[in-house]
Simulated scan of single mutants.
Amino acid sequence: MTSKTAGSTPPDNLRPPPQAVPQINKVTAGDIAAALKAGLADFRAHPLMSGFFGLFYAVFGILFVWCLVWLGAIWMIIPAAVGFPLVAPFAAAGLYEMSRRRQRGESFGWSAILTVAANQRKREMGWMAFVTLFIFWVWIYQVRLWLAIILKDASFSDFYGFWNTVFFTPQGWTFLAVGTCVGAFLSAVLFSVTVIAMPMLLDRETDFVSAMITSIRVVTENPVVMLSWAAVISAAMLLSLVPAFLGLIFTLPVLGHATWHLYRRAVPPVEG
């Protein structure tokens, strides 16, 4: 007679169903153009609500830079401004929800969108925020490292001294070249793991690791188109910083809405 240990093997009906691997579509330049067009339409449909998220992000950036000046960390202003757009995907949760509801033909108000955006901290997107902020921290730390190695004798008593040292000396040019290469690598890594993962976590009940893997798959299977999208985002966000971060009031909402629509084109919705 064969003995069985109670509880050694859980019944099939108690096992969590395995998650299906998301299908990945081929993404083209036409998809990017269509996503931008849809993103602009979402912004025009709800300019005040969309602009609110852009304004919040811009005000946070202004306060962040002001704190650096107040703390005397002049050297951090430029790298912080350049790296600041790295955390934009997490700030766009409310924009993704607006686009999702518009795509479904659902009506919504301020309370519904703000509640969904606030509740993301309790879900897997909180882990994605940790990943994003960790890479941002690595970006700032490596800038400080190269400052110490390359510009060790420089003195940054004010912003203009830092500007002149970095942009008008041979050591500064070396620092810019090295920092640009390292920054490009970190940005590519962060873009790859978040561009699809962020809207996917809002849209589906999945874990952040699976969402990151799906995001990486979309990028690796559509490298040219997705890296072109990264270039569009980077150029638009950096240009938005020039007028004291205020350009973000427009560009962040449009790019956030567009990212949602690109996600829906890259990853088909779950059937059923």
Rank of each mutant, 00 (worst) to 15 (best):
M1R: 12
G7I: 04
P22C: 07
P22M: 08
V27Q: 02
L36V: 02
D42V: 07
P47K: 02
S50R: 02
F56H: 09
F60R: 10
V65S: 02
W66F: 11
V69H: 11
W75C: 02
V82D: 10
S99K: 06
S107Y: 09
S107C: 08
G109C: 07
S111C: 09
S111H: 15
L114G: 07
T115A: 15
N119F: 13
Q120A: 05
R121W: 14
R123S: 10
R123G: 11
W127I: 01
M128P: 03
W137T: 10
I140L: 15
Q142M: 14
R144A: 14
R144H: 11
L151Y: 00
F156V: 05
S157M: 12
D158L: 07
F162T: 05
N164M: 12
F167D: 03
F167I: 05
T169G: 02
T169V: 08
T169P: 03
Q171H: 13
W173Y: 14
V178N: 01
V178C: 10
T180N: 12
C181W: 15
V193I: 15
I196G: 05
T206Q: 03
D207M: 03
F208N: 07
M212K: 04
S215I: 01
W229D: 00
P243I: 07
F245A: 12
F250V: 11
T251V: 10
T259L: 10
V270R: 15
E271G: 04
E271A: 13
